[in-house]
Write a protein that binds this DNA or RNA. Sequence first.
DNA 1: ACATTAAATTCGA
DNA 2: TCGAATTTAATGT
Length: 235
Amino acid sequence: MSRNHAASHEAVPTLAETIRGAAWARGLTPAQLARVESDVHERSIPAGDCVFRRGEPARHWLGVVSGLVKISSASPSGKAITFTGVAAGGWIGESALLRGGPRKADVVAVRASRVALMPRDTFDWLVDASIAFSRYLLLQLNERVGVYFDSIESNRLEDSDVRIAHCIASLFNPVLNPGMRKDVPLSQQEIGLLSGTSRQRTNQALHALARCGLVRVAYGGVTVSDPDALRRFDG
DNA sequence: ACATTAAATTCGA
DNA sequence: TCGAATTTAATGT
């Protein structure tokens, strides 16, 4: 099972590093941070497994320690869509916690991942105890609003090459996805689910973007050297 | 939808 | 632990 390679330059973040490195942890007092570190626990999720399911009560705020997770949903007839991907360093799921209702979408590991789970009680306590934490939540929620505005605009106005470019670029939002790497480990199928286009159409679009030098396509993923250029792409 | 290629897994030594 | 054989996943048209 274990693979002892000379993969020494591959940094494997610990749970504590993920917490201390999170933007929302910066404004906490040492005592608050200590409670957070003792309350948050970690789970390993194999690729393809579900972390949260749509409809279940929200019991945790979720951080990605390593790997890649997607927020997705499936219609009763089985058609699937993906809302967004969250890479290491990203935190997700605050909406259902704040609303107090059921989860509105599934959270699924796209690649084998480790996730941090902050219990609801700890989250609620931080909201009450720390203005800095609450302010961070406002920032993050506001950033989500901006992403959805851009997404709807792009979907209404642009052709699929541009929409796919914008979908990939939106994964690089520095607030929501601070740890997004240039190599995006999403298959063309997954990018299709994210952008609402068929896998075949996604394949064509990626090669068009590659011809413009905006992405490099590889087996199982694409590489984005300049996310801002992708965001500006307008055909 | 189909053919091709890459990767992951299984299996026997 | 190795590599060949087989199966599964992803790509390209």
